[in-house]
Write a protein that binds this DNA or RNA. Structure first.
Lengths: 140, 140
DNA sequence: CTGCTTGCAAAGGCTTTGCAGAACA
DNA sequence: TGTTCTGCAAAGCCTTTGCAAGCAG
């Protein structure tokens, strides 16, 4: 699902409402940053983008809000680096390149990727997601 | 590559030698634990397994040694959980199930998985690895 | 009023690092 | 004797949490 918006306050509130998220001031600010385009941001990056003009959102709130957004399905975590979590505003099915030299994360889609028929899942489990990460390094 | 051995000291030293790793006492102990079978262990687990009988390897050495083994290609990191790193003694091509409820990691192989032809890599990069993680939850 | 939200600071958990002593060739 | 390795303790980083103050309905 793509939930991007051009910083339109009403549109942001509408999206939050759709995900049953109480649209407080701070949450709208964080949503504005996250949803401005498809992107991958760390909590630290969200914090500084949100507070770029005037600082008014605390670090704790950024962390708590990002977790709330993940829980509600508005954004996704991407776990590729042991030192930090990335948050992805694009929740539709896609995969990632991760540049281990630069820490850059980028998307790809494959029409011909075919992970089905899946291997048999472990007993008494249901699938909750599939991550495909192609790790790359600078060739230079 | 599978580098497993039945706790045979000479075999362990031979494997370490093959990866150009100076076979100190501590490193042999850690290798013995890691290479006893294909498995996924956290640093904490390695620490307690190594020191199960008599404590003689420090936490710092476990961390440093696991990193050394990764660097030399003897084992692999598996990054699926933001709170800890798993180390995998099986470096041959395979993929992972991760149970988000229990933290259990298990392997699967797919004959019919076909990630080629790959998407075009980002500019000036070379591929260094492909991770496929199927996240599951308990169905009960 | 009453419950939800925020922010600060402190705590937590995993991992790395500095440095002195130990081991080994 | 010189290099490499180990271990302790401290530091570092990212993230979470406790709790009091703030805000909204």
């Amino acid at each position: 699902m793509l939930n991007h918006t051009n910083n339109n306050p009403a549109a942001i509130r509408e999206i939050l409402g759709r995900y049953v998220i109480n649209p407080t001031h701070q949450r709208c600010e964080i949503a504005r940053v996250m949803l401005s385009k498809p992107q991958h941001l760390s909590a630290e990056q969200v914090l500084s983008l949100v507070n770029a003009n005037s600082p008014h959102v605390s670090k704790a709130t950024v962390y708590n809000t990002l977790n709330l957004f993940v829980e509600k399905g508005l954004i996704r975590q991407v776990i590729v680096d042991p030192t930090k979590i990335f948050y992805d505003s694009n929740t539709s099915s896609h995969y990632h390149f991760y540049n281990e030299d630069t820490g850059e994360l980028s998307d790809f889609k494959l029409n011909d990727i075919n992970l089905t028929p899946f291997p048999t899942l472990p007993e008494n489990t249901v699938q909750s997601g599939v991550d495909v990460i192609v790790r790359v390094k600078n060739s230079g």
